[in-house]
Amino acid sequence: YKRKPTLINNYVQSIHYMLETSKALNINNIFKDITMSYQQRIKNNIFFRDCTWQIIFAKWLRYSPMFCSDVRINKLLKKYYSTKLIENKLDPHWVTGFIDAEGCFSVIIEISESLKSKVRISFEINLHVKDKEILYKIQSFFGVGGIYHRPDRKKSVYRVTNVNNINDVIIPHFTKYPLISKKGVDFLLWCKVVKMILNKEHLTKEGFLTILSYYAYINRGVSKKVLNYYPNIIPSDKPIIDLPNNLNPQWVSGFVAGDGGFSIYVKSAKDYVLLEKVYCRFHIAQHSKDLELMKLFIKFFDCGVVNLRSNLSTPRCDFIVQDTNSLLKKIIPHFDSYPLLNLKQEDYVCFKQWIVDFI
């Protein structure tokens, strides 16, 4: 949009009015995303050359710890998002989607100097401590496991390690509501390890070596310590994960709550009053091995593109929607119907309000 200079004051006042009810939002400058909740404080003028933008966005981001660590938090807004948005029981598809993005199925191998080995298993979700309330909701959903906090690392973890709880609760859930990202491969191999532990097969040499073959493919593979003791581990065959024809809308919101983002970025525009233009973008980032899954988002939302990043050291792909019409007619209606439920919902509300009021 273009505005005449005489409208600048009204424009700024309107933004101030809107932003009095906002808390925090992800902003990037020229496609460099920075997430407010997880990055260190930086100076306001890192984004904007023009003094007017500094004033506008400093006011907008008044509740962001990234910009104003000493400003009192809007307690009413915090209470609203941290409790009321997640009062209802979680949808199982949403849970699977969120864990497809944020969950971890681990096999822990412990080997002593006497070559005595121990096998442990764990299902967990690691989040920033600010997002701990969704972990309590997930714990309530499953009815098992515990939540542990690491204030020194600003982390909260939901973890299930009891093999019977895993077998009776966790595995049946993901059997009924399957993971569809490549994390599903980890889950299937992890399930085999769980069964072997229940059958005491991990206590035999043959069983332990079989577990090592599964362990070699799960998450980051074999640790250096285990590899020192067992350098000739032969990885097992990988299971095949079949993608669905269509994505479940609850799964989509759960997945976006983990790996999605809502951004505003500013680019130079000489024909605009403030000499810069605001753009909005919805995006999902994922490892390039899930490229085909990312393409399903194009089909689901009926908009957007998927781009492979050129940097080979970070094999990632991104689903991106930045067309204003698509954001208004496809993205916003979806998340209005299927909320994100965690703290990322706050980003979405600010993002939506900006688009509806000013684009």
Rank of each mutant, 00 (worst) to 15 (best):
D152I: 14
F255M: 07
I56A: 02
G143T: 01
I86V: 13
T314M: 12
D259E: 15
N26F: 00
V119S: 06
F255Y: 15
Y136A: 02
K329T: 14
N307K: 15
S122I: 10
N44Q: 11
L61N: 07
S181C: 02
F262P: 09
H283N: 05
D152N: 11
V226T: 12
P65R: 03
K195C: 08
V163W: 09
F282Y: 08
N199P: 08
I166F: 14
K352D: 13
N167R: 03
S69K: 09
L188P: 07
N248M: 04
K32T: 05
T175K: 15
P231L: 00
K137A: 05
Y177S: 02
L341N: 14
D186F: 07
K4A: 03
E20I: 00
K352L: 10
N311A: 07
H173E: 07
N165E: 15
F300P: 01
D242F: 10
S64H: 01
V193M: 08
T35V: 15
L312E: 13
I284R: 10
A58Q: 06
I241W: 10
S223V: 00
R153G: 04
G304W: 06
F255D: 02
S288Q: 10
F262C: 11
W94T: 14
Y80V: 02
K329E: 01
L212I: 10
Q345T: 14
N44D: 06
N74Y: 05
T204F: 14
S181Q: 06
Y177M: 04
V226G: 03
L179A: 06
A285D: 06
E201F: 14
L243K: 04
K183D: 11
E206W: 11
N167W: 04
L274H: 04
V119L: 05
C350Y: 12
S140R: 04
R62C: 05
T6N: 08
L291M: 12
D271G: 03
K176H: 04
I56S: 02
L209W: 09
C303G: 08
Y230P: 00
Y214T: 14
M36S: 11
I34H: 05
Y229A: 06
C317N: 13
N248R: 08
D91T: 02
I138L: 08
R281H: 06
Y265H: 15
Q39W: 11
I284H: 05
P333M: 04
L61K: 03
A101L: 04
D302H: 13
N26Y: 00
S263H: 13
S337D: 05
H149F: 11
V160E: 01
I56M: 05
N325V: 07
I284Y: 11
K200C: 06
L61M: 11
I320A: 02
K154N: 03
K32C: 01
K295T: 12
C104H: 12
R41T: 15
Y230R: 00
A285F: 11
F255Q: 06
D336I: 00
N325E: 11
